[in-house]
Amino acid sequence: MIAAFLIFYITITLFAMVFLGIYGVATRSNLIKKIIMLNVMGDAINMLFILIGYRLVYPVFPPIYERHITFGEFLRRAVDPVPQALVLTAVVIGMAMNILLTTYAIQFYRLHGTVDARDMAEIMGGERE
């Protein structure tokens, strides 16, 4: 019961982090802050996936076969491997996207001396909001 309550509590916190990330990306105009909030959002979503795959049994096993565990015991105790496989690649792709975004931000700063989205719009010939 307490464990289920804790799981709900963590889930709601993670959702709060996701919405905080969306808010940050939508309202901040500094590109670096946008990237940071994007990371907060991505990590919260990844952790949510891992949490969905977790199981509330006491000795919980990783999804790896071992010789001294019977097969039925393994199925009763092992966590769900599917979300883990999903998050595994998502983390590295997130890091690669991060590098791409940071590179663009740094390069824009080197060329024009600003990372503010409003200034960027002005420099690119648009209208300042």
């Binding site: 709601i12 795959g53 491997p81 599917v82």
Partner: peptide, 27 residues
């Protein structure tokens, strides 16, 4: 979303059963 997750349990995390897909891969 908080209401849907806690009261309605749309994610199915209250009991934390092994989902059929996960069971297939494990076995």
């Amino acid at each position: 979303i908080s209401y849907a997750v806690t009261v309605r349990d749309v994610l199915g995390i209250a009991e934390n059963p092994l989902r059929p897909l996960g069971e297939f891969y494990l076995s």
